[in-house]
């Protein structure tokens, strides 16, 4: 039940944001807010990516050569910087990640 309430809440929030400016065709945001919006994706996603690489289980720092999330993450960042292509980044990143996990003997097979 709680999960359904969460889903409904997320749906309402998401729709309200998407509908915001379609609902009020004359609405304009102040320049400061518009400026701030440009940094939202970068700030939020970076704040998820770095901890995901360095603290993969959400508890312990894993700054070591056994951490495939960290190693593959660095390679993925390099691929993204060089190709600037989303699919190439995801495909290449996943390939490197699973290759590393296999080499490190971390796959459940």
């Amino acid at each position: 039940m709680e999960v359904w309430l969460l889903i409904l809440g997320m749906a309402l929030i998401t729709f309200a944001i998407r509908y915001s400016l379609f609902a009020f065709p004359d609405l304009r945001f102040p320049p400061l807010v518009r400026q701030g919006l440009h940094y939202v994706p970068t700030a939020v996603l970076s704040a998820i990516v770095l901890p995901g690489m360095l603290i993969p289980d959400g508890q312990q720092w894993a700054f070591n050569s056994e951490n495939a999330y960290l190693l593959a993450g660095v390679v993925t960042i390099a691929i993204a910087a060089l190709t600037r292509h989303l699919l190439a980044t995801i495909g290449g990143g996943l390939l490197v990640f699973f290759a590393l996990r296999a080499l490190l003997g971390q796959l459940p097979v």
């Binding site: 994706p41 990516v49 995901g52 999330y69 993204a80 910087a81 995801i90 990143g93 990640f97």
Partner: peptide, 19 residues
């Protein structure tokens, strides 16, 4: 055990880095 969650990190990297 496969670590599929890395796909999310790779996606976000692919969105952030070019920006």
């Amino acid at each position: 055990g496969w670590g599929l969650d890395f796909a999310m990190l790779a996606t976000f990297i692919g969105i952030v880095v070019p920006a």
